[in-house]
Amino acid sequence: MQSEQLIQKVISIIAENQYIPQEEISLESEFEKLGIDSLAALGIIGEIENEFNIIIPNDKAFLITNVRQLVESLEEFLSTATTHTS
Rank of each mutant, 00 (worst) to 15 (best):
Q8I: 00
S79L: 08
Q69T: 09
T82W: 08
L78E: 01
Q2C: 06
L63K: 15
G43E: 15
I36W: 01
V71I: 08
T83L: 12
K60T: 15
I55R: 15
N50L: 13
E28L: 04
R68Q: 15
Q8D: 14
L63D: 15
K9N: 13
I25S: 03
I55N: 13
I44V: 11
I44W: 03
N17P: 00
L74S: 04
T83K: 14
F31K: 03
A15Q: 06
S3R: 13
E16M: 06
E16T: 06
L78T: 01
Q18F: 00
E28R: 09
S79A: 07
T65R: 15
I44H: 02
A61K: 02
L39K: 13
G43P: 09
Q18A: 07
D37F: 02
S3G: 10
I64T: 00
K60R: 15
L42D: 07
F62V: 14
K60W: 07
E23D: 11
N53P: 01
Q69D: 15
D59F: 12
T80I: 14
F52W: 12
I44N: 01
T80V: 06
N66R: 12
E28Q: 13
I56R: 10
H84M: 14
H84E: 15
F62W: 10
I11M: 06
L74P: 01
S86Y: 07
T83Q: 14
I36R: 02
I45H: 09
E47M: 11
L78N: 08
F77C: 00
I45C: 05
L78A: 08
T85F: 09
Q22W: 05
I44G: 04
Q69Y: 06
I64C: 07
A15Y: 03
E24L: 12
S12P: 00
E23Q: 08
Q5C: 04
T85I: 09
E24Y: 06
A81R: 13
Q2D: 13
L34C: 00
Q69N: 08
I20Q: 03
T82P: 00
E49F: 05
I36C: 06
F31S: 05
G46D: 11
N17S: 13
A61H: 06
T65P: 02
K60M: 14
N58G: 12
S86M: 10
S12R: 05
I20V: 04
A15P: 03
N50Q: 14
Y19F: 07
F52N: 03
I13H: 03
I25T: 03
N53K: 10
L70R: 11
I54F: 05
S79I: 07
S3I: 04
D59P: 01
I45S: 04
I44A: 05
L63F: 10
L70G: 01
L42K: 06
L78C: 07
T83H: 09
E23A: 10
F77P: 00
N58T: 11
D59Q: 15
E76H: 13
I13Q: 07
L27W: 07
F62N: 09
